[in-house]
């Protein structure tokens, strides 16, 4: 797929640069048909995420977070209890862990629902939607494509770590709770650092923009990492704006909330527009020249503008939160 058509796919809100969002949508759509990609991105918090390594804007940023916690919270807000298994970073599963993971996957598929997993063909999230005990093979899909994956290769991909999440039970969640939880997750992510360790120097939320600017000022930006981050965050905020467009209609009988949703649309659209101004400079995966002074200067200006708009956007979220 060319980059242009990828952007188009994202503009139609059919798929996202955030592979976690795609993988969650692929799973929940088998149980609920009233969900779409936009709602999944919004209600699971993925539309509001940003995580930047201040040292070099590395490619791992967008997926460097507590998966168990964020996936479980996100799935719960969509109305599902879940179960996860994960090995430590860069640690392949033991035979017992592997068997447990496969049995979770089979349990999920037997109930007609694909499982969520990681690093199936590339280090991104994807889904497992079939198995065959005779061939000892899984059927899996991720941004690299859909292929068969031998049982023994699960958790032994490019980075050697195992992650599987499955839905275990459907639960009732009312729309107020869904909205409130989404706002709480977004506000929390914006203001509070999610990482226990100082190193690597990851910053999330509003400080993520500062970390990004810092790396550009030092001229130590990873071409590949930066291009990936810019596409992921730009796409996520585009989803954030669309999320509030949909909620504005859904809450039209509540004038205050509806008006505030409209304001959130405007602010997130501004963030998206500022970021879009630099996506062309940094095509993925080639990366462009982020350490060239004129590019850096323009990028820093746009990131500062994007941050200003996002500061305002988060304030709007807090005001909506007071209304629900």
């Amino acid at each position: 797929m060319t980059e242009k058509s990828q952007v188009l796919q994202c503009e139609n809100f059919q798929g996202s640069w955030t592979s976690a969002g795609n993988a969650i949508f692929n799973t929940v759509k088998f149980n609920k048909d009233d969900l779409n990609m936009v709602r999944v991105m919004g209600y699971t918090g993925h539309a509001f995420r940003i995580n930047i390594n201040a040292a070099d804007v590395d490619v791992a940023g967008p997926t460097a977070y507590d998966w168990e916690d964020i996936f479980a919270k996100g799935l719960e807000n969509l109305g599902f209890k879940s179960e996860t298994i994960r090995t430590l970073d860069f640690v392949a599963p033991t035979p017992d862990e592997l068997k447990r993971a496969i049995s979770m996957i089979q349990k999920s598929i037997d109930q007609g629902v694909p499982a969520i997993s990681w690093d199936l063909f590339v280090p991104e999230f994807g889904n497992i939607f079939g198995y065959d005990d005779e061939k000892k093979t899984l059927w899996a899909i991720d941004p690299q494509g859909d292929q068969e994956l031998p049982y023994e290769k699960l958790g032994r991909g490019q980075v050697n770590e195992l992650f599987v999440a499955i839905i275990t039970e459907e639960i009732e969640v009312d729309r107020e709770t869904m909205f409130k939880t989404a706002l709480d997750m977004a506000i929390n992510h914006a203001y509070h650092r999610e990482h226990k360790d100082d190193v690597p120097p990851y910053e999330n939320g509003l400080k993520g923009y500062d970390a990004w600017i810092e790396a550009f000022e030092k001229g130590e930006v990873s071409e590949f990492g930066n291009a990936y981050n810019i596409h992921v965050v730009h796409d996520a905020r585009n989803f954030a704006a669309q999320f509030f467009r949909e909620l504005k209609d859904e809450w039209q009988n509540y004038e205050k909330i509806s008006t505030l949703c409209d304001e959130a649309v405007a602010r997130y659209q501004e963030v998206t527009d500022h970021l879009r101004a630099i996506t062309n400079l940094y095509p993925f995966p080639q990366g462009g020249e982020p350490n060239k002074p004129e590019n850096a200067q323009f990028t820093i200006e746009q990131l500062k503008l994007a941050k200003q708009s996002e500061v305002e956007a988060v304030k709007v979220l807090e005001r909506i939160r007071e209304q629900i």
Partner: peptide, 17 residues
């Protein structure tokens, strides 16, 4: 059960890398 494959056409692949 020894084999089951769900409907592939319902699944999105995401942005190809």
């Amino acid at each position: 059960p020894s084999k089951r494959i769900l409907d592939r056409s319902k699944l999105i692949k995401g942005v190809s890398l």
